[in-house]
Design a protein around this nucleic acid. Structure first.
Length: 552
RNA sequence: GCCCCUAUAGCUCAGGGGAUAGAGCGUUGCCCUCCGAAGGCGAAAGCGCAGGUUCGAGUCCUGCUAGGGGCACCA
């Protein structure tokens, strides 16, 4: 009996009580929270439904709890029901029932934890979208790890997810990038507002290598354009390849420039004009975002005729919608949070529903620290840490795990000194080690003739087995909750708990018999539990884009 | 001035209104004659402050304090 099954049984009981006129008419909850009580004396599972819903039926919590408890007594698989405290319902299952989940998990394999809750939803998830004026830095790397895991989580719930990267190859910053390249190619100083760093020299040289030397003798505008086109392409390739090394591949790399070349920007503006959301003032064209809650209106076409940045976003959003995405999710850094109200206003101006068709996740920044002291990331000071730097020092697994295990609402400190020491203080090793252990136990079991030829779940009755089984049973809900809350970090935290439960079990219950002893049913049964743990750890690590190693 | 995020153990962070607030690292005491000690068991150690809502608040609301980020016809 899984917590989901118990929850469903409880909902059915409430419906029955209503049919029997014990409960007043009224809306019933569609889901009831069934939790593992912290204190094992409180049974296998507990629910607070009486405390939650008693008031809406004009009952005292304990009275409602008694009614539910009485009905639950007769439910198959339930051995004991208690009402405790103000109205908690504590449930104990029949021996063996809790153990069945081990076999179910092994049978489900890769599909354990998946659901079809989001099937039919077509989601567009945009993240990273770092500008092609430099390598992917530490901050963006966080969104690469988080975004990719979130995509996997949403896919596990049946959603059709497109990972998208908005490639910002239009506008003034690209011009500065091009001027910087050109200057370095000529051996000149970087312009005042330009980009510095060794990578600029590298790319400038690459551009030169790939073309005729006469490039430098072209008229200024043509030379700059040549460096812009070639430099952006090289930068783009580098970003793409470092993300690929990081295990993050996008389905769509969308070039901002294409929106201008295709006329999509003009069409978006026309549509907003037709909707009566645009006005002219001071020679510029404005979008009246204040109609939809923004604190001031926004310029779309500047008085010099150039498009403001938001113009591209208008067209880009419409383009996503026209590609059939019900929901467009953006992951943006905290330095862009001020951008949210105007994006939401834009969404509303197009007649869409902000928060539904357009969803923006704001993630806090990554701070660089050395020995506890903050380090300012500065390209000029050479203290920019890139995705590749991070991976070079700690590897993909540790990097992804460290960046994904915290809530995006918290800023994250990355300590350089710690990373340089290559210490194993990253919890990813704790989880990976647990998985490696399950595999080695399986290897040893096989060599000693322990096989999964029989399964007697009632033998999984040690305290550490009950704990582990309950933990494994939570995986589907953890995934579903992580999807609902857009919180990949919950999966990481959950895996750490699974690993802990497994290590404790390993310490108490042997899968292989002691030397000279016979292989018994209990060993064969435990092998199922070992395999189930392996499955959950493997599936969970897969969600995080981290390898589940056979050995370490 | 306005907006967003944060404040939980020595450090980095979890914690879905519920029962005795957790993990990793660090400190410290124990446990390898048999499936991996990258492990387990134990100890010390914590919800910024003040109100409020609630049967019940680390969690929700208000105010305060502190830290981070943002408030362009930049992108």
């Amino acid at each position: 009996m899984t917590p989901e099954a118990l929850s469903a049984a409880l909902v059915a009981i409430l419906r029955q009580l209503q049919d029997d006129r014990i409960l007043a008419a009224g809306e019933l909850p569609t889901e009831v929270v069934v939790e593992r009580p912290r204190n094992r004396e409180h049974g296998d599972w507990a629910t607070n439904l009486a405390l939650q819903f008693a008031a809406s039926f004009s009952l005292k919590p304990r009275d409602l709890a008694e009614h539910v408890a009485k009905a639950l007594q007769t439910t198959a698989g339930v051995s004991k029901v208690d009402v405790a405290g103000p109205g908690f319902i504590n449930i104990t299952l029949d021996a063996g029932l809790a153990g069945e989940i081990a076999q179910q998990i092994v049978d489900a394999g890769e599909s354990y934890g998946r659901s079809d809750a989001l099937s039919g939803e077509k989601l567009n998830l945009e993240f990273v979208s770092a500008n092609p004026t430099g390598p992917v830095h530490l901050g963006s790397t966080r969104w690469a790890a988080v975004g990719d895991s979130l995509a996997r989580i949403l896919q596990s719930q049946g959603a059709e997810v497109t990972r998208e990267y908005y490639f910002n190859d239009h506008g003034a910053q690209i011009d500065r990038f091009a001027r910087s390249l050109l200057a370095r190619a000529r051996g000149d100083q970087i312009p005042e507002d330009g980009y510095a760093g060794a990578y600029i020299d590298q790319i400038a040289n690459q551009v030169l290598d790939g073309t005729a030397v006469e490039l430098l003798n072209l008229p200024e505008a043509e030379a700059q354009e040549a460096f812009r086109a070639a430099g952006v392409e090289l930068m783009f390739q580098e970003i793409r390849s470092s993300l690929h090394e990081f295990g993050v591949d996008f389905d769509v790399y969308f070039h901002e420039n294409s929106l201008y070349e295709s006329g999509a920007v003009d069409r978006a503006v026309e549509r907003l004009k037709a909707g009566g959301h645009m006005f002219e003032q001071d020679g510029a064209l404005w979008l009246r975002t204040t109609t939809f809650g923004d604190d001031r209106d926004r310029v779309v076409l500047k008085s010099d005729g150039e498009a403001a940045y938001i113009a591209g976003d208008l067209a880009y959003y419409l383009d996503k919608r026209s590609r059939g995405f019900d929901r467009c999710i953006y992951i943006l850094g905290a330095d862009h949070h001020g951008y949210v109200p105007r994006m939401m206003a834009m969404c509303a101006a197009f007649g869409d529903e902000p928060g539904v068709n357009l969803e923006i996740l704001i993630g806090q920044m990554v701070n660089l620290v050395r020995d506890g002291e903050p380090v300012r990331m500065s390209k000029r000071a050479g203290t920019v840490v890139t995705l590749e730097d991070l991976v070079d020092v700690v590897g993909v697994d540790a990097a992804r795990y460290a960046l994904v295990r915290s809530s995006i609402n918290s800023s994250l400190d990355v300590d350089l000194a710690l990373l340089e020491k290559k210490t194993n203080d990253n919890p990813v090793f704790y989880v990976q080690y647990a998985h490696a252990r399950t595999r080695q136990v399986a290897v040893n079991a096989a060599s000693l003739g322990v096989e999964r030829v029989e399964f007697a779940p009632e033998l999984l009755d040690h305290a550490t087995e009950e704990e582990l089984l309950a933990k494994l049973a939570e995986f589907p809900r953890v995934l579903s909750h992580a999807a609902d809350e857009r919180s990949p970090h919950r999966v990481a935290r959950y895996l750490e708990e699974v690993a802990g439960s497994y290590h404790r079990w390993y310490d108490n219950c042997r899968v292989t018999p002691l030397a000279g002893a016979d292989v018994e049913t209990v060993h064969r049964t435990r092998l199922w539990l070992n395999e189930a743990t392996s499955t959950v750890l493997r599936n969970g690590l897969g969600i995080l884009g981290v390898i589940a190693p056979e050995r370490m």
